[in-house]
Design a protein around this nucleic acid. Sequence first.
DNA 1: GCTCTCATGAGATTGGGTCTCAACCTAGGG
DNA 2: CCCTAGGTTGAGACCCAATCTCATGAGAGC
Lengths: 142, 142
Amino acid sequence: MKATEIPERMSSRGRRLTRQRVLVAEALASAKRALSAQELYERIKTSHPTLGRATVYRALEAQVQDGMASRFERDGHVSAYIACDAEHHHHLVCTRCQRVLDLDETVVAPLLSSVGRRHEFQVDHAALDFYGLCRRCRRKRP
Amino acid sequence: MKATEIPERMSSRGRRLTRQRVLVAEALASAKRALSAQELYERIKTSHPTLGRATVYRALEAQVQDGMASRFERDGHVSAYIACDAEHHHHLVCTRCQRVLDLDETVVAPLLSSVGRRHEFQVDHAALDFYGLCRRCRRKRP
DNA sequence: GCTCTCATGAGATTGGGTCTCAACCTAGGG
DNA sequence: CCCTAGGTTGAGACCCAATCTCATGAGAGC
Ligand SMILES: [Zn+2]
Ligand SMILES: [Zn+2]
Ligand SMILES: [Zn+2]
Ligand SMILES: [Zn+2]
């Protein structure tokens, strides 16, 4: 995603480009790992104490809708978010350092279609997230 | 899973076979669809008003540990459970009627290993659940 | 600027899930 | 059959992520 099209996306669908949503987007993008809404809220709060919690939730939801971020479920029924510039895709989440890798979708596509065919099931959405240890963490403590 | 080995599983690991856990297991098994803990609690409560909410949560957790049920995340951060007799496997969940199909695991195994190899990632656990319309619901309202 | 909306923030509220602990019950031994 | 040890239960308090409310604030177009 080009830098110039970021404000364009953020103001799509009659959505207004506000300081708060830019803040949240920047904070999420500069974090190279997945963060919960609460974690993000606390980070930004230190430099912008008036920021509201609900605003962070709304901003993250907007980012997901606008294809700028992706959400997945962390253990304990908590949503985590990661800045992402591509279309819908899936993730490898390191459970130790919270780093997130994008999954090579060419591996997934055949699975989706074969699943639908074999079970006569119309797949609308798939939760395809892999949890484990990234290369770096695996080397540190095997 | 043979009927005779159900009590065996339910009392594994020093776990005691109680009336309440049998109730929860029967209620879940007789429902042919996925249910949240709350839904299950309300169902059983009508015939056993003294049943505690926490007991249902504990019983479901035990069933998952003992390989008698499987959990996945429903939309809105709610856990849903389905009675299952096999080892760890994955599901096709109908978002309209809540029926659940077991996924043919032979499709999944190669995916897991190829993902790990390609990304140098040690996959510990994968959320591989597919949401959409089952054959019956697809025919009713396309 | 003006105005029309949408967005924000502070706090209250919801609701799934967990924790606590005294009373209870299962399993096993005598 | 009785007894004991220790896992289990039920009621309610508690936790906390997420949502809702609504008065106030601020983009965007004219
Ligand atoms: Zn890592
Ligand atoms: Zn991504
Ligand atoms: Zn269906
Ligand atoms: Zn199953």
